[in-house]
Design a binder for these strands. Structure first.
Length: 256
DNA sequence: ATGCAGATAATCT
DNA sequence: GATTATCTGCATG
């Protein structure tokens, strides 16, 4: 796969102005950029709006936490979960709808060194994370891209892009990991995000199935991935966590 | 390769 | 007080 052949032209906001389950498969092969790191998306999940998708954060309506999902399309909804992880979504449909696509996994196509550093445990000593695992899973992907609480609501549409486009190629830069590609994305303002055209996945290679780790709407096949891609995360069904022994109910019999 | 337990806190009931 | 759109390390086949 030639890294330099991915289109760096940004996707317009209208791309996200559709139902999330239609946007999701079209997102495969696209490139999400934040600062120096870019990820080619290989696995995503669609989440619907209030009252229509029991697995969605917006199912019971608008709250302070999910407010961004009700905002305009093309913005990042970044949420905190399990007491330690951030996950990122791209908001779909016009203001007021409350749906989004969770970005679950991908391949690092720029800023590899930075991604490795971010995914290395404190101190830098110890185990080394294989490159294919750098963004293999939604929380890992968020770490690799440097997405945190403060990036919730960040616009991922590169509005000022036309001025930065290469007149010959129509692209805004080149992908690559080496020093010669240090300015691979000329003109993208520091600290901002964008979704680039990349190379859309061949429809024949797209698979779909139930979403990972959800406890409701288990049959809705709104997880989409590129078949056979090594960066796709392993599927895990939802496992109800057993209550800690201190919190077991009064009627419970101690084992053995 | 697969499976389980623990971590850890915001959000919701 | 329970649940969670998860990850990691350590266990076992």
């Amino acid at each position: 796969m030639g890294l330099g052949q991915l289109s760096a032209a940004p996707l317009p906001r209208s791309f996200f102005d559709r139902p999330s389950h239609e946007v999701a498969p079209d997102l495969l092969g696209r490139v999400l950029v934040h600062g120096p790191v870019a990820v080619r998306l290989t696995e995503v999940e669609a989440y619907g709006g209030p009252g229509e998708d029991p697995a969605a954060h917006t199912y019971r309506g608008r709250t302070p936490r999910n407010a961004v999902m009700f905002g305009p399309p093309g913005h990042l909804y970044v949420y905190f979960t399990y007491g330690m992880h951030f996950c990122a979504n791209l908001v779909c449909l016009p203001e007021g709808h409350g749906s989004a696509v969770l970005v679950r996994a991908g391949e690092i196509v720029a800023g590899l060194d930075e991604a490795r550093t971010r995914r290395t445990p404190t101190g830098g000593r110890g185990r080394r994370v294989p490159d294919r695992d750098l963004a293999r899973g939604p929380a890992r992907l968020a770490v690799a891209l440097g997405l945190l609480r403060e990036h919730n609501g960040l616009d991922a549409i590169w509005e000022g892009a036309p001025a930065a486009l290469d007149p010959l190629t129509g692209h805004s830069g080149r992908f690559g990991h080496g020093p010669e590609h240090a300015t691979w994305l000329t003109g993208l303002p520091h600290g901002s995000a964008a979704v680039l055209e990349g190379r859309p996945a061949d429809p024949g290679t797209i698979q779909s199935g139930p979403r990972t780790g959800v406890s409701t709407a288990k049959e809705t096949p709104w997880r989409f991935w590129i078949d056979g891609d090594p960066t796709v995360s392993p599927y895990r069904a939802h496992v109800p966590r057993r209550r800690s022994s201190a919190a077991t109910s009064v009627g419970e019999t101690p084992s053995s």
